[in-house]
Design a protein around this nucleic acid. Structure first.
Lengths: 106, 106
DNA sequence: AGTTTGCGAAACCGAAAAGTTGCGCATATA
DNA sequence: TATATGCGCAACTTTTCGGTTTCGCAAACT
């Protein structure tokens, strides 16, 4: 039951939903209209997104608008940072160096 | 059976493995030594990582060294780009603006 | 008031995932 | 040659996931 953001973005439909509501809040019905699924399925995805605080709700009459909490997406960016350091620091050269050392050991 | 990189990083153990072999290639046994799982479980994770081309193998005698293909991680970075644009362009102000407009509609 | 619409929640189902166990093969070591 | 080690693969079990169906509630419309 404990979800994290990485599990949330694992599903393609959820990624599409995230991109859809990133700039504009939308209702579950409106979101479902963009895909080939039912409102209930979308609602379930939204629930998962809400569980890991990726979306915020805004009630307006009987409609509920969902919008992406963009700040939460930075968590992915932060995790990626460790790898970005690697590939930005000319990793290819380092890789070649390591390969050379390994061959010498053989 | 069709996996993508987002599903690959959904599992916490796999993320730990990825971080572990990012800089240094390791054998399945060595990787398993770092976690509280069996070699077979690690082997299965490595197979999944290999399926979406996130790791490369290097055979050395009866040992197999696995290393992260760091370039593949850029796919996540690319996907994140669309959101980075949003939060880097002072999204908060835009959000406030939209909220104001919405209130006026009410 | 009665009906329609928008929604969440729960129950259910088939498919897939994660982990365990056991096996066989190849490479080392005695 | 015999034994131990490192590994992948396949079978099996338990859990989880994604989707559908059904229900009930609240807000809107007639």
């Amino acid at each position: 039951m404990r979800r994290d953001i990485f599990q949330a973005i694992a599903d393609p439909t959820r990624r599409a939903i995230i991109a859809l509501i990133a700039l504009q809040a939308m209702t579950p019905n409106a979101i479902a209209g963009h895909f080939d699924t039912t409102r209930q399925a979308v609602s379930k995805h939204l629930r998962i997104l809400a569980e890991c605080e990726l979306v915020k709700q805004e009630h307006k009459g009987r409609e509920i608008y969902y919008q992406l909490k963009i700040d939460k997406m930075k968590e992915i960016d932060n995790w990626l940072e460790q790898f970005r350091k690697i590939w930005e620091s000319r990793f290819d050269q380092l890789d070649n160096l390591l390969s050379t050392i390994k061959k010498q050991k053989k």
